[in-house]
Amino acid sequence: MNTIILVAVLTMAGLGTFFALILAFFSKKFAVQDDPRVEEILAILPGVNCGACGVASCHLFAESLLANKVPINGCIPGGAEVAEKLSALLGVESEMPEKKVAVVHCGADANVRKLRARYQGVETCSAANMIAGGELACIYGCLGYGDCFDVCPFDAIRMIDGLPRIDLIKCTGCGKCVIACPRDIISLEPWDGSHPLVTVACNSLDKGKDVRKICPVGCIACKICEKLSPELFKVENNLARFNTPNLKEYDNWEKPLEKCPTNCIVKLSDKVPSLSK
C-alpha cells in the first residue's frame, strides 16, 4: 500500500518536473520582447485604470500612446504633471490639458431634504432614482446614496450629511462620478486654483415658488446674482448658472454670494496658488 503511494507521488513529481522543464525551455525560446517604454510609461501613469482617456486600461493607454493612437496629454487624471513627464520621456511636445474638477450642483444635505415617500430598496442612487424618480420631493436633488463616492478611484469624495463633498486637491477630473450620478448633478468645471471656486449649488429647473416649497437652499431664479454680476451669472430655465468661460473677469463674485436669498451660491474653495504653477 505504501509503495503505491510512493510510486504515485514519484510519478507525479517526475511528470511535473518533465513538463516544467519543457515549458521553461520554450518560455526562453518564445520570449516576447515587449517595448520597454511601455513599462516606463506605466510607471508614470496613475495606474487606476479609470478609462477617462477613452481606452480600457493604463496598459492599453501606454501601448496606444506608442502607436500614436491617443494624444500625449490624454491621461486626464494625470493632468499636466503626467503629460509633462510623458513628453520628456518620448520627446514629443505636449499641450497641457486644462485642469478640471468635479462640482456638485446640489446643496440640500440630509438635514434639509424633504421626502415625499419612504424608500426601502437597494441603497444606490441609480436604484432609488428608478423607482418613480426617487423618494425626494425635489426631482433634481442629490439622493445621497453615494454612487459617486463608490466609483471615485482617487478617494476624492466624502459623503457628509448625505451630500458628496469633493476634495478639490485630490480630484483629477476623470469624470467617473459625472457618469455615475443618475441625476446629472455633478459636472466638470475648469479650475486651476488661480481663483476661488464658486458655483450655484442647485440643479432645479422648477419655478421659484415650487422650489421654495420643498427646499430652503434651492435656486429660486430671483436673478439678483445676474443683476449684481451679469458677466458671471446667468439665469436660464429658472436656474442660475455660474458662467465659467468668464473666469478672467473674476472680481465681482463676492456680492452675489452675500446677497443670494437662499444661499445657494457657494464658495467651494479659496485660491490654491500651489496648483497653478
Partner: peptide, 15 residues
C-alpha cells in the same frame, strides 16, 4: 505499468 490508473485524470490535466 505501475498500476496507477487512478492517476489518469491528474496526469491528463498536467499534460
Amino acid at each position: 505499468r505501475f498500476n496507477l490508473p487512478f492517476l489518469e485524470y491528474v496526469t491528463d490535466i498536467i499534460v
